[in-house]
Simulated scan of single mutants.
Amino acid sequence: MSKENKGNEDIAAMSFEQAMDQLEKIVASLETGDVPLNQSIEIYERGEALKLHCERLLKAAEDRIEKIRLDRSGAAAGTEPLDAD
Rank of each mutant, 00 (worst) to 15 (best):
M1P: 10
M1E: 13
M1D: 11
S2E: 14
S2I: 08
S2M: 07
K3V: 14
E4S: 14
E4F: 10
E4Q: 12
N5Q: 14
K6T: 08
N8Q: 12
A12K: 14
A13S: 14
A13I: 01
M14Q: 11
E17Q: 12
E17S: 11
Q18V: 09
Q18D: 12
A19P: 05
D21H: 13
Q22N: 11
Q22E: 15
L23E: 05
E24A: 08
K25D: 10
K25I: 02
K25A: 07
I26L: 06
V27N: 07
V27E: 10
A28N: 07
A28S: 09
L30Y: 01
E31A: 10
E31N: 14
E31I: 01
T32A: 06
G33W: 00
G33Y: 01
G33T: 03
D34R: 07
D34T: 06
V35Q: 02
V35P: 04
V35G: 04
V35T: 14
P36A: 11
L37H: 13
L37K: 13
L37I: 10
L37T: 07
N38V: 09
N38H: 09
Q39T: 09
S40K: 12
S40F: 00
S40R: 15
S40Q: 15
S40H: 01
I41C: 03
E42C: 04
E42F: 00
E42M: 10
I43S: 02
Y44G: 07
R46K: 15
E48K: 15
E48A: 13
A49G: 03
L50E: 05
L50G: 02
K51W: 00
K51A: 04
H53A: 05
H53G: 04
C54I: 07
C54Y: 03
C54V: 07
E55V: 09
R56F: 05
R56Q: 10
R56N: 12
R56W: 02
R56D: 10
R56G: 04
L57C: 06
L58W: 03
L58Y: 05
K59M: 08
A60I: 06
A61C: 08
A61W: 08
D63H: 02
D63W: 00
R64E: 12
R64M: 07
E66K: 11
E66C: 06
I68S: 03
R69I: 00
D71P: 00
D71W: 02
D71V: 03
R72I: 06
S73H: 10
S73F: 07
G74P: 03
G74W: 02
G74N: 06
A77I: 05
G78T: 07
G78R: 05
T79E: 15
E80F: 03
P81E: 11
P81A: 14
P81Y: 03
D83E: 13
A84C: 06
A84P: 00
D85Y: 09
D85I: 09
D85P: 15
